[in-house]
Design a protein around this nucleic acid. Structure first.
Lengths: 194, 194
DNA sequence: CAAAAGTTAGTGAGCAATAACTTAATATCT
DNA sequence: AGATATTAAGTTATTGCTCACTAACTTTTG
């Protein structure tokens, strides 16, 4: 396995661990064990723990932007915003690690040494959402706000229905077959309809 | 100083430290130093670090609920919701520690040993907001969602104006002198008008 | 004088990071 | 082609440090 391939697999393992324990609550030994490699070897692949953590944060946000890209293919304006919102809430069920990792990034950014690169990740995400959706002002605020609530729901393991499944049909997403189906039929049956 | 008074002052100091470094990124020595007491004495006042952290989380959420109580005095319904929203965003400027500490609580709750008590704090907050405002459904979701966005803004040190100051007058808070003044006059001049 | 408040000194465990060594693959030179 | 030099991938052993927590002792206060 080449060093680059190893680095990639280490980052994936690191996200699972960091998403749970955060920067200071995760040992490099735990990451090494998960990826099946000796602990000191991590320091051949990354300068130090900080570099590994930041690479993991970058990966997390990059994957997130990719998922937005895929979600809006062929859409624009309100439809695009809407598709991204669904893409994000879907992560709650499929890959909550991405949401938990984000929270870990935000708290780590309170250390001055981590702030700049992590803020840069946020700025890129913000910029991409603005470009893909064309939204601004309150609409954008609500998009990010709801996203952050998703993150907290994932961290606290709260029942998502309490804040998200109780959407009234048509109230938020007009002309959306999926929203309508979710409001009408039993929940879960139409998860892939959008 | 009595043990109870010490405990209270330790919790305040602990919040400053935990809000920055989180559960695992904060040493008991740092807390002891801030409060001006020897480090081992903390373990006479609290069983262990876990107990101290959870007491701090509890204090944080209790203070938050108190601030909601004060904000809604004499109000009800939409007016109460509105007042609580202002109370919360105001914390961004005055006491961001409370917002940062919350995020630290959420990430700590991913440890099974911490989840139950921290979730209980969230449930109490949720319940109180429902009772004080009478809101439900999307309105409640948006309230909490925007609150969580505030937390992230505090953690990342983002400019709050990007997501909150650009409220169009009357768009969100109808019949609010403060909202109108903020939209019309220079920002900051009307911060205490509500 | 007795109980409560508080201290100093110490312990064992866990951690990030270094150094030195080993194995496997790849290119180089007769 | 086959022996040899070279680079890349990976390991074991170790170190110095930080940290939560304990035990035993001292000081203050009613």
């Amino acid at each position: 396995m080449t060093a680059d391939e190893r680095r990639a697999s280490v980052i994936r393992a690191a996200m699972s661990e960091f998403a749970r324990g955060g920067l200071h609550g995760t040992s490099t030994a735990a990451i090494a064990k998960r990826v099946g490699v000796s602990q000191p070897y991590l320091f051949r692949l990354f300068d130090d723990k900080k570099a590994l953590f930041l690479a993991t944060v970058d990966y997390c946000f990059t994957r997130l932007r990719d998922s937005f890209d895929r979600a809006v293919e062929g859409l624009e304006g309100a439809g695009a915003m809407h598709a991204m919102a669904h893409a994000y809430t879907d992560l709650l069920g499929t890959e909550p690690e991405f949401l938990r990792m984000q929270l870990q990034a935000y708290v780590a950014s309170q250390d001055p040494e981590y702030q700049a690169p992590i803020r840069a990740c946020w700025e890129r995400l913000d910029e991409q959402v603005r470009v893909l959706s064309g939204a601004e002002g309150e609409e954008l605020t609500d998009f990010f706000a709801r996203g952050m609530l998703c993150n907290v729901i994932a961290a606290l393991d709260l029942p998502r229905e309490r804040y998200f499944s109780s959407m009234k049909a048509g109230a938020q997403h007009v002309d959306c077959a999926r929203c309508a189906a979710e409001a009408a039929g039993p929940p879960g049956t139409s998860a892939e309809s959008c």
